[in-house]
Design a protein around this nucleic acid. Structure first.
Length: 809
RNA sequence: GCGAACGUGGCGAAACUGGCAGACGCGCAGGACUUAGGAUCCUGUCCCUCACGGGGUGCGGGUUCGACUCCCGCCGUUCGCACCA
């Protein structure tokens, strides 16, 4: 009988569905384990091999946990709203209402073929009114918590996608989706106050009891929140006060000029008549440049003198006030004190415009008068100079002393700042959940009552956005005209929809209660299953999605809806699958579609191959040639199952080497699966198979264990083998093999014998032998003797069960 | 520019807290079985050397009886962030 995945795989997929193998009882599970993977965006191209890789890696873990005796809930769904889908719909000229169901159907087919342990009973799509009803409800939760507000804001506008982008969606000044240069526009937008949680979002990252995340991810989050501590200092300028933020208050004596952002409100007041036209021209030029150009275009400094002066509160000296676009209005206070001696940008500016540069920090043999040739921001081991009473103080102490001194004079206070911005969730687009707000001339903005949810997204044909900057929904009076829920007068619906990231910030709650039409999340199930013990997904979401989900959990906790503030106890990012060293992308035409590989090799072989490619958290290069190895392995194991002994041999009948290998493999595979070391787990299974073949062993118990251990990787294959071996239930309801610790190592070990650190021989000795037993044996070894001959033994290093190193002279 | 990760055969990669470098797999070479082989099985496969032996984990140094592993300095690749005061 030969191995035929093309018949075996559909057979088991059908059985799993019929027998509801993968649909745990969410209310009665005793050892619940929520195995979460990031749900896909159902693109028209279908699942690519990178998705396949990610889902397989997560599925292997889920299946392993199940065999360990947990009741595993492994849901899947579709993140189907958003610009991505909408843009594709626009491109092909088909309505997303038509397109998305087709894509979901295709994805469902592919996900089924992959053999994932998905609970299809709880599948969801964010575009389903039964889902987004609760996304709207979530918006209202934030609204009632005072965490949602509206403001007119300069926003990133993508002229090609015709929508507002979050700062996070602007990459180097370009739209992350289409690559167009982003412009600045002022629009009324809904924001979530994520900044209220900045410190908590940081603190929890260090709380091991709440979060076990890989360091790269936590670092990315930490950088994103961007905490800095410094001081706000007031500089008097005429009758006005210019407030600056600085992280280096210790250098204030070196502040020889000030720079304001061109948009700074005080610019007009400070500008002297003589400078007016120059300043106005500069402001205009800066406004014309979009946010991005200012940030990216060039690091060459430009600027204009306002003609005004401010007083340095430390020195009492007047210093000129300039404007320049390297100072950004939206960070700090939009104004800086410039310390050219110790800041690279200020130095460049001062050099270009011939402004004074005064050293206030010296290190090593530098003195107060050592000229500055390049700016230095060194603090360690440096001391203050040219700083009045603070001269000679180490910089670190000096900072605190200077802040205290300025605070006493009421011109400064220590502050903590974060780079994190509030989350703009408004989108002037069609393909998203309408934001559930009604504007009433009499009552102002009124939240849609919960009983009126969902606010259905109407089917409109003209969903194309235009340059007006308003949502396509704003062209449909029949939809947005609605009675005010409070006073009954004619009101107007909010015509913006919400950001896709809001859909995905809470989907893992909804999985647990898709069958409930009357509540977003079910309290008992939330209590039982959450927080998520293992979340696996892509690093591209290391910042945004994960940060937003964390924020939402914090708000839900405060609302008393959940019992935790960190939704993902453990997060692991899988690596990236590349093709010929390059990232797969449509434009490069190197996207690998898994379908043809499933058809040719079977899903199990593809799964095994992908997991064997390299460390799961590092990804790898997809090469067709590699599939033969895993396929051969399955075929050989298949044959072994066929040749398997009828009876179970007693321990004594099994070859000692096989016995050891068998137990050692069980231990290693178990450990490797726990730590996502899939590639080495597979290698260990291959080794065991090789040992079996070399020793002509087909012992039933061992073969059974091999089938069990390969099951997470090759589920259909394992089910079929298990059935051939007489298994009555699903192999995934069988118990994960246990091992005998005493038999994982041989009683006789090989000990390396070195002379002066070079390996000369290997001798056998009983496990646990002492140096006194091993040394004489080593000295008797022929080869070793040659190297010891006529030499004096200076020292012997003995590492138990491993090595003996004889140092001679 | 800043931050992080990484650098091991022809290729993907192993190597637990410093202890036989190259497990496992691909590929390649030779052989067996075959009308045939792009199927299967067996053997070999880091480099130099007939051998004894020597060299070898990006490059240069250091610590150590012993370094892929730790430390210092370069070079290179990848990924984040990027005028954040």
């Amino acid at each position: 009988m030969t191995y035929t995945p093309e018949t075996i795989e559909p057979k088991w997929q059908q059985r799993w569905a019929e027998r509801r193998t993968n649909e745990p009882d969410l209310d009665r599970a005793e050892k619940p384990f929520y195995n979460l993977m990031m749900f896909p965006y159902p693109s028209a191209e279908g699942l690519h091999v990178g998705n396949f890789y990610a889902f397989t890696g997560s599925d292997v873990f889920g299946r392993f946990m199940r065999m360990q005796g947990h009741t595993v809930f492994e849901p899947i769904g579709f993140d189907a709203f958003g610009i991505h889908s909408e843009n594709f719909a626009l491109k092909v000229g088909t309505h997303p209402n038509v397109l998305i169901p087709q894509n979901i159907k295709n994805f469902t087919r592919q996900l089924t073929q992959l053999g994932g342990m998905f609970d299809w009973k709880h599948v969801l799509s964010t575009t389903d009114p039964a889902y987004y009803k609760w996304t709207q409800w979530l918006f209202l939760q934030l609204y009632h918590a005072g965490k949602a507000y509206k403001k007119k804001a300069a926003v990133n506008w993508c002229p090609s996608c015709k929508t507002v982008l979050a700062n996070e969606q602007v990459i180097n000044g370009a739209c992350e989706r289409c690559g167009s240069q982003v412009e600045q526009r002022a629009l009324e937008q809904w924001f979530f106050k994520i900044t209220d949680y900045a410190q908590r979002l940081l603190d929890n990252l260090d709380d091991k009891s709440k979060m076990d995340w890989s360091a790269t991810t936590t670092t990315a989050q930490r950088n994103w929140v961007g905490r800095s501590s410094g001081a706000e200092v007031d500089f008097a300028a005429g009758g006005e006060t210019i407030r600056v933020y600085t992280t280096r208050p210790d250098t204030i004596f070196g502040a020889t000029f000030m720079v304001l952002a061109p948009e700074h409100p005080l610019v007009a007041k400070l500008t002297t008549p003589a400078q007016q036209s120059a300043v106005a021209a500069y402001q205009q030029a800066a406004a014309a440049k979009d946010v991005v150009a200012r940030k990216v275009e060039t690091k060459d400094k430009t600027g204009v003198f306002t003609g005004g002066y401010a007083t340095n509160p430390a020195t009492g000296q007047p210093i000129p006030v300039w404007i320049a676009d390297y100072v950004l209005m939206d960070y700090g206070t939009g104004a800086i004190m410039a310390v050219p001696a110790h800041d690279e940008r200020d130095f460049a500016f001062a050099t270009k415009f011939h402004l004074p540069i005064l050293r206030v920090v010296a290190s090593g043999d530098e003195t107060a008068s050592t000229p500055i040739t390049e700016p230095s921001a060194e603090t360690d081991g440096s001391r203050l100079v040219n700083s009045g009473a603070f001269d000679g103080k180490p910089v670190t102490d000096g900072a605190a002393a200077i802040v205290a001194w300025l605070e006493a004079k009421h011109v400064a206070k220590g502050v903590i700042k974060y780079r994190l911005y509030d989350w703009c969730i408004s989108r002037q687009r069609y393909w998203g959940p309408p934001i559930p707000i009604i504007y009433c001339d009499a009552c102002g903005p009124v939240p849609v009552p919960e009983k009126d949810l969902p606010v259905l997204l109407p089917h409109i044909e003209d969903f194309r956005p235009d340059d007006s900057g308003i949502s396509p929904l704003a062209r449909h009076k029949e939809w947005y005209h609605v009675a005010c829920p409070t006073c009954g007068k004619q009101g107007r619906r909010e015509t913006d929809v919400s950001d896709t990231f809001l859909d995905s910030a809470w989907y893992f709650y909804r999985y647990l209660g898709t069958e409930f039409a009357d509540r977003a999340l079910d309290a008992n199930r939330v209590k039982k299953w959450l927080p998520v013990p293992m979340y696996i997904g892509g690093n591209e979401h290391a910042v945004l999605h994960l940060l937003y989900s964390r924020f939402i959990a914090m708000v839900l906790q405060e609302r008393g809806l959940v019992h935790f503030d960190e939704p993902f106890r453990k997060f692991r990012a899988h690596g990236l699958i590349v093709k010929d060293g390059a990232k797969m992308s449509k434009s490069k035409g190197n996207v690998v579609n898994p379908d043809e590989y499933v058809a040719r090799w079977g899903a199990d072989t593809l799964r095994l191959f992908l997991m064997f490619l390299g460390p799961f958290e590092e990804g790898g290069d997809f090469r067709d040639a590699g599939l033969t190895g895993p396929r051969r392995f399955l075929e050989r194991l298949w044959d072994l199952v066929g040749q398997c002994e009828r009876r179970t041999l007693s321990g004594d009948e099994i070859h000692r080497d096989v016995m050891i290998k068998w137990n050692a493999t069980k231990k290693k595979v178990t450990h490797d699966l726990e730590t996502l070391g899939y590639n080495t787990a597979i290698a260990a299974l291959m080794e065991l198979l090789n040992t079996m073949r070399e020793t002509n062993c087909s012992e039933r118990q061992i073969v059974k264990d091999m089938v069990l251990m390969v099951a997470p990787f090759a589920p259909h294959f394992a089910e079929e083998c298990w059935e051939r071996l007489g298994g009555q239930t699903s192999v995934f309801d069988a118990k994960w093999p246990a091992w005998n610790e005493g038999l994982t190592q041989d009683a006789v070990v090989e000990i390396v014998v070195q002379v002066n650190g070079k390996t000369r021989s290997v001798i056998k000795a009983g496990r646990g032998s002492q140096e006194s037993q091993v040394l004489p044996k080593a000295q008797k070894d022929d080869t070793v003797r040659r190297f010891l001959d006529g030499k004096e033994i200076v020292k012997v290093i003995f590492v138990k069960d491993r090595l003996i190193n004889i140092v001679v002279r």
